[in-house]
Design a protein around this nucleic acid. Structure first.
Length: 570
RNA sequence: GCGUGCGUAGCUCAGUUGGAUAGAGCGUUUGGCUACGAACCAAAAGGUCGGGGGUUCGAAUCCCUCCGCGCGUACCA
């Protein structure tokens, strides 16, 4: 990376200057004390290093340090300057040309870091109850999770995506009971869910079960003897609906893991026994408690209720231990912020059972507010809530994915439906896609003959198909020299992609990719408006086409990570 | 109450781990198409970084303390 190149040059210079006794009392330079930054004011340079942090040991004023260091820098064809306590750097042609060459040669692999410590990661997200359609919040986890998976894979990790189906427990009974009511309605009975608030909570009164009831009656004549049949039917139906929507939303899971299977296989019970054996268990009020407070949780937790059944936590412990036993180096879970209290207790259980709790990383996502006509619509309070499917149908997969991903996971997301629907400059998705389409269009125009609209004469293509193919397949960077100055800002933005991938993968922050793609599109539009790519000079045209092709490539790569389409025409 | 997240331009948000004059997009105002897509670009206006203390050469960023908002605080899942 250019940034590392620059830092390296400075570090060598600092060492030399110190050895030569030009840095006051400073004799040795410890690595990692200097940090490269992007100057806020572009006039200063492309990158800068602040040497103030050396001042203490050197007992010298920062501006003098900068001056001294500068004398020892091997500058090559780059430009350096010392201003106040800063050493500023402007990249020369060599670095820029190398970068374009790198993109064109690596293509879809551009930005993939080398020598990554590969981890085997299990990424768990969405993990909804199979009791109804996804709500909008699920959409955020689905989008962010799948982008994170794409990113971590591209970065070099092995990623296994899993959906934990909460198909055990009282909510399934509730689902079956609700379906029974809907079926009886279909059979003509005058019956409805209880009007009483607290009794109503034992049912799912949403309209969606009406369709399930109709489906059920296609193959059955009435209610079954065994109510469990209804539970299974409804559960399977909803699971199928959920899976279909995930496909449509470009979210792929390697596995759907059933909670029920943990109970049936005895793994949950085995887990309880292991905890008992560990001595971190006691009985109180007829229930079995786990001493999670000994591991940082704020209180102990029940793992077996007084009625003998297990809690949700118990299955979750078994599930996470199972993940570790399946051989994963790292578990990443995406949970809604409403589950944040769970982090401490699950980590506690992992530690109590002898595993390293740091192997579990929980990304807590703040919730989603829907904004309709400029007003927030609280989810869940309305009987006829807007589902994820409604939203996707309304604004499309691309826009939904982008909007769900574009904000920091720590902030509550306001999803403005009206804005996301607009095909205009208010919508960042279109801005980015337009940049890609524009790049494609320029390339098309460069290699295709045109007809003059006034005279009807054929205008020959600026570049032949052979020349273009040669450009992108046997790239010769010498053609860039002397022709790249106008696109410098754009090249630096393309270079930034490398650190973007690295930082985003390490911090798990995927929204940065959405931001980057907007910035790159912005630089490209600006470049486009300032110079003509196709012009009278063949060499200059080819050089600029190489730049356009690089932009198209990087946009494509980034949008692929977002699983947002990169259209050639719009 | 305790835990947790947030509070930055009219609105929606960045701010690369403490550094140069706090930045984008939208909105507003102004300018730019008989040339590669104007779904675009260029420029201007707009700020007590929630308030108050503290730490130091230097704070939106770290510490303390208030204020406001969301979420959680089950032997539900």
């Amino acid at each position: 990376m250019i940034k590392d190149y620059f830092l390296n040059k400075i570090e060598i210079a600092v060492k030399k200057a110190a050895e030569a006794g030009k840095l006051g009392q400073l004799r040795e330079y410890g690595l990692n004390t200097l940090v490269v930054e992007r100057p806020k004011n572009v006039e200063f340079g492309d990158y800068a290093v602040n040497v103030s942090c050396l001042a203490k040991n050197a007992k010298m004023a920062p501006p003098l340090i900068a001056q001294s260091v500068l004398e020892f820098v091997d500058k090559e064809d780059n430009e350096y300057s010392a201003v106040a306590g800063f050493i500023n750097f402007k990249a020369g042609e060599n670095l820029l040309c190398n970068l374009i060459e790198e993109i064109i040669k690596k293509k879809s692999d551009y930005g993939k870091p080398e020598n990554v410590e590969k981890e085997k990661i299990i990424l768990e997200y969405v993990s909804a109850n199979p009791t109804g359609p996804f709500h909008i919040g699920h959409g955020r986890w689905a989008a962010m999770g799948s982008v994170l998976a794409n990113l971590l894979k591209f970065y070099g990790h092995e990623v296994y995506q899993e959906f934990y189906i909460n198909d055990a427990g009282s909510q399934i009974q509730k689902l079956g009971n609700s379906l029974a009511v809907r079926i009886r309605q279909q059979l003509g009975e005058n019956i409805d869910f209880p009007a009483d608030e607290t009794e109503r909570k034992n049912f799912y009164p949403g309209d969606y079960l009406i369709a399930v009831a109709k489906e059920y009656l296609k193959t059955h004549t009435g209610l079954p003897e065994d109510s469990e049949q209804l539970c299974d039917f409804a559960k399977n139906y909803e699971e199928k609906v959920q899976k279909e929507l995930l496909e449509k939303f470009r979210v792929h899971f390697d596995n759907f893991f059933s909670e029920l299977s943990l109970h049936k296989s005895g793994e949950v019970e085995a887990c309880v026994n292991k905890l008992k054996a560990s001595g971190k268990i006691y009985e109180k009020d007829g229930a079995v408690w786990f001493k999670s407070s000994e591991y940082g949780d704020d209180q102990d937790r029940v793992i077996k209720k007084a009625d003998g059944s297990n809690t949700y936590l118990t299955a979750d412990i078994a599930y996470h231990i199972g993940k570790l036993q399946r051989g994963f180096d790292r578990m990443i879970d995406i949970w809604g912020a409403d589950h944040h209290g769970y982090v401490a207790r699950v980590k506690a259980s992992i530690e109590a059972l002898g595993f390293n709790p740091d192997k579990l990383e929980v990304l807590l996502g703040q919730l989603v507010n829907l904004v309709v006509n400029g007003e927030e619509v609280r989810m869940g309070k309305r009987k006829n809530m807007i589902t994820l499917e409604d939203l996707i149908n309304e604004v499309g997969v691309d826009a939904t994915r982008f909007w769900m991903t574009m904000r920091n996971i720590d902030t509550t997301l306001d999803f403005d439906i009206d804005l996301a629907k607009k095909n205009s400059d208010e919508n960042p998705v279109f801005y980015v896609q337009y940049a890609h389409a524009r790049a494609c269009s320029i390339i098309r125009n460069a290699v295709n003959d045109k007809t003059d609209s006034l005279t009807g004469k054929t205008i020959p293509a600026a570049v032949s198909a052979g020349e273009y193919s040669d450009l992108i397949n046997n790239f010769d960077k010498s053609l860039l020299y002397g022709n790249i100055a106008d696109g410098k800002k754009l090249v630096l933005k393309l270079e930034e992609y490398k650190s973007l991938i690295e930082n985003s993968a390490k911090t798990r922050q995927v929204y940065t990719i959405c931001r980057y793609v907007q910035e790159l599109a912005g630089e490209f539009h600006s470049f486009y408006n300032s110079v003509r790519v196709i012009n009278d000079s063949k060499k200059l045209t080819l050089a600029r086409l190489a730049l356009v092709y690089s932009v198209k490539t990087v946009l494509n790569n980034a949008l692929a990570i977002l699983s947002v389409s990169a259209p050639e025409r719009m």
